[in-house]
């Protein structure tokens, strides 16, 4: 067993390198496909600053920010899922299933609903405020779920059932507020709630980037605490970990990552659930390896889904969340049948 762990640790660097390579390949594929096709050679030329104005516009102003957002959101949701699965000791935990995404979504919809007149929702200011609102919603949802599920401690099964219930409640509120919107906003909200990288521009990248740059390394730094927590509360406190304290900090990190991702990418389901499982298969359960690998796989998966969504029914753009759900729901069902 220990030898196996050692072997997996040796595999860490090659896996990281090959994942980064795959991400770069996907970057080219994604840049060159779409409604306007651009040959891979032209992509390279344009990146080297030798393209036509039109190619530069399509690549730098439309496609590249969308792809970078996909990378950030994918990484954020995957790390969030990895942390949640670690602290709840539940392999089926995921920010989507627990209702954290819907909480963030409701908060953003309320924001659009109440400030649509006083504030242009695509203005720079509101783009920077929106992740904050999503964060409030996500934190509120998390506190609500944690409090309702609390009964002399938090049992993982109870946590998930409570999460499903809270999720349904938020969805009902969402539906009521959505129907009060005018048709344009309604359509926008519907597409966004099914998971869509809708506002692909550099301002949004700038709004999201600081969250990821701060939170993912923070999660990585807490990897050891996460490893110990995963062993169970008794062992963890025996090893001198302040269990509830560490759990709350980690929960906050996971919730913040999910909230920021939802602000930019809407309700992308199952990504945070499936990716940590794939990562665990590749590298084992130690979180200092699991978190970076999850981030990379999450980024890659969302890029692939984004590219598929843009091209499968061209010229109709299918929201990326739909593709992710169709790709990963069967795997989720498989996990569900396998676990007790």
């Amino acid at each position: 067993m220990r030898r196996l762990e050692g072997l997996k640790r040796q595999r860490f660097i090659p896996i990281v390198v090959s994942l980064i390579l795959l991400i770069f390949i996907m970057l080219f594929v994604s840049l060159s496909t779409g409604v306007i096709q651009i040959m891979p050679m032209d992509v390279i030329k344009t990146l080297m600053n030798n393209g036509t104005d039109r190619q530069e516009l399509v690549l730098f102003d439309f496609r590249l920010p969308g792809i970078i957002l996909a990378i950030l959101i994918g990484a954020g949701l995957a790390v969030s899922g990895a942390i949640l699965q670690g602290i709840t000791k539940n392999e089926l935990a995921d920010p989507g299933i627990l209702g954290i995404n819907t909480g963030a979504g409701l908060s953003v919809v309320l924001f659009i609903f109440f400030f649509q007149n006083s504030l242009d929702t695509s203005s720079t200011l509101s783009i920077f405020i929106m992740p904050v609102f999503a964060l409030f919603g996500a934190v509120f949802a998390a506190i609500l779920i944690y409090t309702i599920a609390w009964k002399k401690g938090v049992n993982p099964i109870r946590l998930i059932l409570v999460g499903i219930g809270v999720n349904a409640g938020f969805s009902a509120f969402l539906m009521i507020f959505q129907l009060k919107m005018d048709p344009q906003d309604f359509r926008q909200a519907t597409v966004w709630l099914s998971g869509d990288i809708w506002n692909a521009n550099w301002t949004f990248v700038a709004a999201l980037l600081p969250w990821m740059i701060i939170l993912i390394p923070l999660a990585l730094q807490k990897a050891n605490a996460l490893n110990v927590l995963h062993l169970g509360d008794d062992i963890a406190s025996g090893l001198g970990t302040r269990v509830e304290h560490e759990r709350r900090i980690l929960l906050l990190i996971a919730v913040a990552l999910a909230g920021a991702s939802v602000a930019a990418g809407g309700g992308i389901a199952f990504l945070g659930l499936v990716v940590p499982h794939i990562a665990r298969k590749l590298i084992g359960p130690l979180h200092q390896y699991l978190i970076p690998i999850s981030a990379l796989i999450g980024a890659l998966l969302l890029m692939v889904a984004d590219t598929i969504g843009k091209n499968i029914l061209s010229p109709t753009e299918v929201p990326v969340g739909i593709i992710v759900a169709i790709l990963s729901a069967p795997y989720f069902v498989y996990l569900l049948m396998k676990t007790r």
């Binding site: 929201p319 739909i322 759900a325 169709i326 729901a329 989720f332």
Partner: peptide
């Protein structure tokens, strides 16, 4: 799981 998958396919 089944609900999300079916509703995703219907949206598509």
């Amino acid at each position: 799981a089944i609900g999300t998958m079916l509703s995703s396919m219907s949206s598509m």
